[in-house]
């Protein structure tokens, strides 16, 4: 391993016997069955598996975007079963989200899109937040595209802006859903290496859904899903 993972520390994500279903009553359809896994600080964990196997649903639960119904889920020390909306929002601010669709604001430049996320961290001074924005955009290779609007950037460049936005708040946990799906193999590879580097530099944990076989080698662990269950033993590596 290139970087150190402290498996004796408190896990950043602790999932135990998590189950989830969409709908109510007759239409109730169970999607997740007895999911148990951990993510430790600094660890890169990949979620793979066929489409419809429940990977995205796991991410939305871990990201506090859906209400936990059965099982246990603790993220960054917050027990999501008993958390209220304010707790969830507070926890989400410490998570970096990278979505398949970049969803940048078209009326803000690359720099402003990233800077806007810093409004969630008022404890950081204006000067420092400006420096961080510049630093991250340089790191994702957009040094000379900082004042471009999303419409003037390529798909890969937009995804990198989204990554910068997810990481500018120095999250302890990054959740990424197929971040490379919309990219060609070269930029896909670059994006994943970038994420890996950031995990190393800042000690952030990464939970990433991917179908992309070419990026599997960056993982500390791979969790394979099938029909809403974890297929492979967790500690395979």
């Amino acid at each position: 391993m290139l970087h150190s993972i402290n498996r004796t520390a408190e896990p950043i994500v602790n999932v135990e016997h998590l189950a989830f279903s969409f709908g109510e009553g007759e239409l109730c359809k169970q999607i997740l069955f007895d999911i148990t896994f951990n993510v430790f600080p600094g660890e890169i964990v990949l979620l793979t598996g066929p489409s419809g196997s429940g990977k995205t649903t796991i991410l939305t639960l871990v990201g506090g975007l859906r209400q936990v119904k059965a099982g246990e889920l603790t993220v960054l020390g917050t027990d999501f079963r008993s958390a209220d909306v304010a707790d969830l929002v507070r926890t989400r601010r410490q998570i970096g989200f990278i979505f398949q669709a970049h969803n940048l604001l078209d009326f803000l430049s690359a720099r402003d899109n990233v800077a806007m996320a810093m409004q969630l961290h008022p404890e950081v001074t204006a000067t420092e937040s400006r420096e961080r924005v510049t630093e991250l955009l340089e790191m994702v290779g957009l040094k000379d595209r900082m004042d471009y609007y999303p419409a003037k950037l390529s798909g890969g460049q937009r995804q990198r802006v989204a990554i910068a936005r997810a990481l500018v708040g120095r999250p302890q946990l990054v959740l990424a859903d197929e971040p490379t799906a919309a990219l060609d193999s070269h930029s896909g590879r670059e994006v994943v290496e970038l994420l890996q580097r950031l995990a190393t530099d800042h000690g952030s944990a990464i939970l990433m859904v991917t179908h992309d076989n070419r990026v599997l080698n960056v993982a500390d662990r791979i969790i394979e899903m099938e029909d809403g269950r974890i297929k492979q033993p967790v500690n395979a590596l």
Partner: peptide, 15 residues
């Protein structure tokens, strides 16, 4: 026209 973007802002912690 900005619903997905606004939803994204909500997801990352904007109220």
């Amino acid at each position: 026209t900005h619903l997905p973007q606004f939803a994204t802002l909500k997801a990352i912690g904007f109220t």
